[in-house]
Design a protein around this nucleic acid. Structure first.
Lengths: 363, 363
DNA sequence: TTGTAAGCGTTATCAG
DNA sequence: CTGATAACGCTTACAA
């Protein structure tokens, strides 16, 4: 009935009586207001907005008109409390600030997630945390507070405990990245290996035989996947094992690792980086040592960030459609959160983009 | 009483009797369970967790023990329904995908916002939209669904209608950027002008007299602010008006604008870009024309993205502490959402960072 | 087809 | 100081 007003239920049979000295700051209309105006019960209104059968078209009509007149829309919070669903998904990001601000993954992923979520009328609750403890905490609260019906698990580590955690919480979850063996949580990821293989083949065809790798932060599943793909690709190409330097996905790390590789007695003539950011920093590092790219050193990145096309030389790299990935992930997770079983989705494959940072080796 | 279980209130005098064939999927404990276990009323439990006076220490003790034993934490959703506050802030982002994925602003800002929000126990609801209509819609729903108590207004346009919208919705809002005249919504932003002035002074001191500017997307308040600051700084330095080329904050736009300036009959010897991304693309564009940076062209960026230090040459730029900005904004907006009046906060000033992309002009 | 009433898990009011 | 009891806005049996 008349919400937040002291009148007794008599109001139910007619429009709201003019309250004497109505307290200003009229709050939003409620389902009760709509029901009263449409002269039906709250249940009927609920049925109408939820598109359920069992409502006469006349009643439906009146409800819709009343809702429109009052500008009423159901309250997500109240609905969540009732249905025990938040109509929202959670994303907890744990990354060092520097990485967060430069890596193009998250913004794109977020854009994709949103594009998948908004047609379904789901919201996204975001948390950025620093420690692992805060991270666990965030998932627990998200679940507990009923703020999210499902969560994305990104930047998975090799020994990540989050799948077990979400499983225990009974919280729907989806790993963003390569599949994990024995994981209680399904995963959705593109196959990096294909792009890496194409890159190695490209370098091999150019005549490179010593191809180094600057890997991402150790312990991360995707860093590890790219590294293994590189090893496998070298092997497939019949090339000897190449030198690898572990880095951390940052510009500083990429520069340092590049120097490490170039300081070797037999430096590589080409380097494959685990992301574009490190590759760009690597180009600068090599340039700083008097090397020319690509004449003296070929460089391949990973991600194809928008900037990669606009540096000198334009970066040869491996492109993933992160937006499409995010969209697919969102749809999948909503489906999981609604209790449907996981069903594998096809993601656009990674793409090898040849630009000017690769060329035949000088020697 | 015992929540969601069929037992009669007899359960109140002892531990919960073992239900025969208990339905799986035991849901979380509620305040009622805690109250029952502690042998107090729900209200008392509520008072305890909200740290309000009027509870005997014995009762408080029992409540805390019961809560700990049950692992109970209050449900944010239920609380929100009761208090009519979502304990969450909203951020609606409308940007073209490319810009979103490369501009370091949002990730940093988000990190800052979160660092301000999490101690206050507020969540962040994020939306990424494409059209202006979707944007308006997003704000309306956020407000209306009760999903957010306040919203950030970013990327403000000169004729932006969002301040009026949020005002009409009665939704707390905070503009992220320079203050607007006559705005019903307060603003929190760093003063770009100081950094721009320092940059121009730096270039002037190096001997430059023709300093061009590549501006950000037209219509944006912050792009306009930087452009005006540049004009004013030239004026202050007693330099003639310089050529300006309008761009859009993207790498492609930066490259195009750079060519535009360099094609002039009297090309500038130094260019100030409205962001680092365009500056980096500008360096590549200039290099592609056979110019050397900084010998033939000095370049100054804006933002100091992490990559700027690791390109060749390292970029001279203007740094803003976006994380601190985000944190301050979060605190401010929470305060506004709680009904407190706006009170100006000091933000760390922008900082001029001289690196190697600037040098005395050749001619 | 429609209405009633009982939740959902809190907070708030107001007697004891 | 404590405890019923009524909101809060919605969904959903269950009746009518």
């Amino acid at each position: 009935m008349a919400h937040q007003h002291p009148e007794p239920s008599a109001a139910q049979t007619g429009p709201e009586p003019a309250a004497p000295t109505p307290p200003r700051r009229r709050s939003r209309p409620t389902i009760g207001d709509v029901a009263a105006l449409a002269r039906v019960s709250k249940a009927t209104v609920s049925f109408v907005v939820n598109g359920r059968a069992g409502v006469s078209s006349r009643a439906r009509q009146r409800v819709l008109e009343a809702a429109a007149e009052l500008g009423w829309q159901p309250s997500a919070g109240a609905r969540a409390l009732s249905t025990r669903r938040a109509q929202a998904l959670g994303l907890v990001i744990r990354r060092p600030p520097e990485l967060l601000s430069t890596d193009p993954f998250f913004p794109q992923f977020l854009a994709g997630v949103e594009s998948g979520l908004s047609p379904l009328d789901y919201a996204l609750v975001l948390q950025v945390v620093e420690t692992e403890e805060a991270e666990r905490n965030a998932y627990e609260r998200l679940s507990h507070d009923g703020r999210a019906d499902g969560v994305f698990l990104t930047d998975l580590q090799l020994d990540d405990r989050r799948p077990v955690l979400t499983d225990r919480l009974g919280l729907a979850a989806l790993i963003i990245g390569p599949e994990r063996p024995d994981s209680p949580v399904p995963a959705l990821g593109v196959d990096d290996a294909e792009g890496v293989r194409r890159a190695v083949e490209h370098l091999h065809a150019l005549g490179h035989r010593r191809i180094g790798h600057v890997s991402g932060a150790e312990g991360y599943v995707h860093a590890e996947a790219r590294r293994r793909a590189w090893t496998a690709a070298l092997d497939d190409a019949g090339l000897p094992e190449g030198p690898v330097e572990a880095a951390d996905f940052t510009g500083a790390g990429g520069a340092r690792a590049t120097h490490g590789l170039l300081d070797l007695p037999e430096p590589p003539t080409a380097i494959l980086y685990a992301n574009d950011l490190m590759a760009i920093a690597g180009i600068a590092a090599a340039t700083g040592r008097g090397l020319r790219v690509p004449e003296d050193l070929s460089v391949v990145g990973f991600d194809d960030i928008p900037l990669s096309e606009y540096i000198a030389p334009p970066l040869t790299t491996i492109r993933q459609d992160v937006i499409a990935w995010g969209r697919a992930a969102a749809q999948q997770l909503v489906s999981l959160a609604q209790g449907h079983p996981f069903q594998a989705t096809a993601l656009p494959p990674v793409e090898f983009v040849a630009r000017a940072s690769t060329a035949p080796p000088a020697r």
